[in-house]
Amino acid sequence: MSEEINLDIETGTYPSRKLIYLRKFAPYLVFVVFFILWELFVRIFHIQEFILPAPSKVFESLYQFREPIIQNSLQTLMTTIIGFMIGIIIGLIGGIFLGSSIIVYESFYPALIAFNSIPKVAFIPILVIWFGIGTIPAICTAFLLAFFPILVNVAAGIATVEPELRDVLRALGATKIQMIRKVGLPRSMPYFFASLKVALTVAFVGSIVSETIASNLGVGYLMLVASSRFQTSLAFACLIVTGALGIMLYLICALFERKMTRWTIRESDSISFSG
């Protein structure tokens, strides 16, 4: 009898430990396998480099052109982050404004939806008329894409305070400002930080799109140059850098989020996090 139980525990723990390892390394494995398949595909079918370069070639040109890549990436990062920061400020202020009053919320919401459904690329020609090509249109595009998710989430967090809580505070004579400061804002923080991840990613997209259309600097511009010279491997190298930067920005936001809104993580979750 006892043997049977031991056996159960053995078989119960063994695969789960394996699973933990698998969960840790699977994301990296996906990348590695993807690149290997890509390399094999190119070699087996003898695909020409200017159509689809093998990953080995891509990494080669990544190294070869490291200086312009780094320089242009920094430009893209800068425009992304400035646009994103402005997006945070406007998104927060707008979100508080929108969330604090039902009338404001209802009057502005349709306009916001309309604004959000306009592809932001369409703004770039106008931005170029106003500011010329280069850094400012990229920052503006990043901002235009970034502020919306922040605004909507902060507004939702403030607007959806539980009715009981609202009653408790109102019966104490709390002013509108006190309600927002003591309940609305802290309550919307998890929404806010969740939206930052989305906002930063779309700001990045905005910067790059603007650079491909109207700039002489940045990863987007570099890709455009590479394609016009048929340097396909450089264009792919830029794509890889873009992806890596995207992951990096996302991780920074996620880390920040977890630090700032620890109270939303319940005890059982935190155990599984530490494990």
Binding site: E162, E164, V168, A171, V183, P186, R187
Partner: peptide, 11 residues
Amino acid sequence: MAFQSSSLLPW
């Protein structure tokens, strides 16, 4: 005031 749901501030 006090209600059935505790309505405490979780943060």
